[in-house]
Design a protein around this nucleic acid. Structure first.
Lengths: 230, 230
DNA sequence: CGAACCCTTGATGGCGATCAAACGCCGTGG
DNA sequence: CCACGGCGTTTGATCGCCATCAAGGGTTCG
């Protein structure tokens, strides 16, 4: 890790409140590495050797079975990923792939397991991160089981808007192909869904989203009344 | 809590390794309560007041949106539920309902949040429980996105068999209606699925399952090569 | 300039939902 | 004790959402 990067990393939620001593040990053994786009970082089934923390860029977590594959979640900067595999010392359940060039902090799994026992602040941060991840997947499953495809698209757009402080105009991240997989549909149907939503208060042009009638979009999408703080 | 019940509860994975002092405080403030079947314990959206630990019985966690509803997971004895809502101090994402008469330990959420900070063993147990729950939902989502309905049924039966030490004969828990919802299909299609599986190495008669040709069932279902320890 | 790939739009097909009806089980009440 | 009604389950017929197949336009990159 270069000297200039250290303060930046220290500010990550996962490490911000750790004691100096433990943080020193952790940083001494970790690597901050830059990866090109479209690179597979690890595959599902491998033993979890490193906790990954995305500092910059965009990472996709996906799964495959019997020739089919699907995207499960997008990791955005300042979040760790595959923490569950690291703390339980089990194989990864998902494959990770960079979407854009990404800087990732790699922390040896064994060290994480050890430090969790010694540093209360790290332990609490791990609990919070795991709980948030858990809730994210509960939502994703509910979304898929209870809503049809165009509704899922509408909710996704509303959620993205909320994460940007309620902005009416913003850019989609990643390719539409990827988004379609994340939302559990084919690219063709995502495209048709965007078309259908034009009548429901959103215009999508390229990767530019414009919410023109939020009330209408909400009426169509039936968003959940309670949200996560993201 | 009655005197005879205390040693039993102390052996729960979540509490087994706690220090005596903290465990005393926790038990003093908790209730062990018996609930009748078909009773809703709490609804999604409510603030998380109590950590629930199922000591005996069977509980379903479900979600609803816009008139539709679905079952998300079954809780079996000796597992806690809605831990994520308790540690993040957020509303429940799921509604809980007893399927059979159930004994449940209710621990005040505020106390859990406090004790986690003071007792390392409890904190580690919480981390393990959260990580396992997280992985369970990752799998459920993958299962739903990558497999078609009859395959999901096959995998569910293989998993149940594995959890009973590889038994070829066992009973389904809960009603089939509920199982259908859990697996993301209608009761009609679950029934047809069972019919189709007769040609793939399993016979279902009432709630009795008999795996007659495991290799064939596995070839049909494409189970994941790596599993969780349950 | 051409090849590859993403995205879009249209046509067709299949999995699973919905609708419908019959059977069995069980609890209630006559 | 039996009749009845309710509900879960099963089986059959039909419908609809979404996947698949197909083709054309746009952009990127060698």
């Amino acid at each position: 890790m270069r000297p200039g990067e250290r303060p930046e990393i220290s500010r990550l939620p996962l490490f911000a409140e750790m004691r100096e001593e433990e943080r020193d040990r952790l940083f001494a053994a970790s690597f901050l590495q830059v990866f090109p786009p479209e690179l597979t970082l690890f595959e599902a089934g491998q033993q979890a050797d490193f906790l990954h923390v995305l500092v910059d860029g965009l990472v996709e977590l996906k799964a495959a079975n019997h020739g089919r594959e699907t995207s499960l979640t997008l990791v955005e900067p300042l979040h760790s990923f595959i923490l569950a595999a690291v703390v339980t010392d089990m194989p990864y359940l998902m494959t990770a792939r960079t979407l854009s060039a990404s800087r990732i902090l790699l922390v040896p799994a064994e060290l994480v397991r050890g430090l969790i026992r010694q540093d209360k602040a790290l332990m609490m941060a791990v609990i919070r991160e795991l709980a948030n991840g858990y809730r994210e997947f509960v939502r994703a499953l509910t979304d898929l089981k209870l809503r049809q495809s165009t509704e899922r698209i509408g909710n996704h757009l509303l959620l993205q808007s909320r994460r940007r402080g309620g902005a009416d105009n913003f850019q989609l991240k990643g390719e539409k192909k990827m988004l379609a997989s994340l939302l559990g549909m084919t690219p063709e149907n995502l495209s048709r869904g965007f078309g259908a939503l034009a009548a429901e208060g959103v215009i999508i042009s390229g990767s530019q989203v414009s919410i023109t009638d939020r009330a209408r979009l909400e009426a169509f999408s039936h968003p959940d009344p309670f949200y996560d703080p993201l």
